[in-house]
Simulated scan of single mutants.
Amino acid sequence: MRRELLLLREMRDAASTIRDLVGQDTAEAIESDSVRRAALLWHFTVLGEAANQVPAETRDAHREIAWRGATRMRNRIVHGYWDVDIETLVATAADDLPAMITALERLIRDLDE
């Protein structure tokens, strides 16, 4: 359980950092800032890698969390980083990560008790 909590916290922290990195900026603004772009790619990679390592029983029991989506995004970044669509990452940060962060925080709290 300890490793599982570590992975879930890594996911939550990466998702929160992604939200902070994107803020209210456009994909174009992030694309033009190489440091922020690299940080965004890194944190999406961490998010997906941790999601992939969460035990299958936990993933199956909490289907409200986009485990496969996070893992697929990580794979796309790692294996095709030269052709990553920053607009998709920004949209994901705005549209999908707030609910994921909430679900992860709830799961962490439940497992930590």
Rank of each mutant, 00 (worst) to 15 (best):
Glu28Lys: 12
Val90Arg: 01
Ala61Gln: 13
Arg9Gly: 00
Asp60Ile: 00
Met1Leu: 11
Trp42His: 13
Trp42Asp: 06
Arg36Tyr: 04
Ser32Asp: 12
Ala50Val: 07
Gly69Lys: 08
Gly23His: 10
Gly48Gln: 05
Gly23Tyr: 08
Gly48Asp: 05
Arg3Lys: 14
Thr58Tyr: 00
Trp67Arg: 06
Val46Tyr: 01
Leu89Ala: 10
Met73Pro: 00
Gly69Gln: 11
Met100Cys: 11
Ala99Asn: 12
Val54Ser: 00
Met11Gln: 05
Leu47Ser: 08
Val22Trp: 01
Pro55Asn: 12
Asp112Trp: 03
Thr102His: 08
Ala99Ile: 05
Glu4Val: 13
Ala14Phe: 07
Asp13Leu: 13
Arg109Ala: 14
Met11His: 05
Ser34Cys: 04
Ala91Phe: 06
Thr58Glu: 05
Trp42Thr: 11
Thr88Glu: 14
Met73Ala: 15
Ile101Leu: 07
Ala61Phe: 04
Arg59Ala: 11
Thr92Met: 12
Ala27Thr: 01
Val35Lys: 13
Leu97Thr: 06
Arg76Trp: 00
Asp96Lys: 15
Arg2Tyr: 07
Val35Gly: 11
Ala15Thr: 03
Glu10Ile: 04
Met1Pro: 12
Ala103Asp: 14
Arg74Trp: 05
Arg2Cys: 03
Ala103Ser: 15
Arg63Thr: 15
Glu49Phe: 01
Thr92Lys: 03
